[in-house]
């Protein structure tokens, strides 16, 4: 039998490992968040904040649990495969540890449901309500088919253009329809996506906040994100986010 060891001392060492691990993990998380791609809409800030918050949180959990795995495997290893003497400690459970684990894991879940979960949803739905009640909201009909996008602006008399041009800082209601199979409307920079389902009409509400175009930033592009057949990867459309004055000019030049 192996000699009795001081497990509290081992725990003290684990705390040191945890501190080092947390510094490294959160440092990497900070680096990742600092080089985050563009958040180009009101909605992108909501979904982006949810994602970055979870990166901070999961990095910490990884450091704590992963640190404990690596430390205990290292600290409590046998010298060799022939070292088969039973360890001194043969405890089958220890309530304080199990109860703490249970309480903490439920608490993290509840907290995550509230923020970023429900808070994020409330933000998205709040933005949607404002757009729905905003008379100045821009209405864009989006039609998906294998394998192209077309856009119409019914209030402006513009139909079937293959490039999505929108003014910055104006709420937009996208009305999504498909002619054939399931597609998915996604502009990566706008941080939100929605499936386009046959026999159904879907609505997506977005307020772009960053001026730019696919040429200047490839994240600003329409991209189908639901497998829709052989042309799926090429089912993209260029996007241009411009100032309201430029948009007025573009609209008058393109209306019928």
């Amino acid at each position: 039998m192996n000699a009795k060891e001081n497990l509290w001392r081992a725990f003290g060492e684990l705390v040191v490992v945890w501190v080092i691990g947390l510094v490294i993990a959160e440092g990497l998380a900070a680096w990742m968040v600092a080089s985050w791609p563009v958040l180009g809409s009101v909605e992108a800030h909501v979904t982006g904040d949810a994602t970055t918050y979870l990166i901070w949180q999961t990095s910490a959990i990884f450091a704590l649990v992963g640190g404990a795995i690596i430390y205990s495997a290292f600290r409590f290893r046998a010298k060799s495969m022939d070292d088969t003497a039973a360890p001194y400690y043969q405890r089958r459970s220890w309530k304080p540890f199990a109860i703490t684990w249970l309480v903490v894991s439920i608490a993290i879940n509840l907290a995550n449901t509230i923020y970023p979960g429900m808070v994020g949803l409330e933000d998205l739905w709040g933005a949607q309500l404002q757009t729905e009640h905003n008379k100045n909201a821009l209405l864009v009909d989006v039609t998906a088919q294998q394998w192209k996008w077309s856009f119409s602006y019914p209030k402006l008399g513009i139909s079937d253009v293959s490039k999505l041009v929108v003014p910055v800082n104006q709420p937009i209601e996208f009305v999504l329809r498909t002619k054939d199979v399931i597609h998915d409307f996604w502009v990566p920079a706008w941080g939100i996506k929605k499936d386009v389902i046959p026999n159904e009409v879907r609505h997506l509400f977005i307020t772009p906040t960053v001026v730019g175009s696919t040429a200047t930033n490839p994240m600003i592009r329409v991209q189908c994100t639901m497998i829709c057949g052989n042309g799926h990867p090429m089912m993209r459309a260029p996007v241009k986010v411009i100032t309201p004055a430029q948009f007025k000019q573009w609209a008058s030049a393109n209306s019928l």
Partner: peptide, 19 residues
Amino acid sequence: GFVYLSALGTMWGGRLRIN
């Protein structure tokens, strides 16, 4: 998480032969 709880508690204070 209970699986990790159990695994960590098993290793803790043991003599892990690592093959």
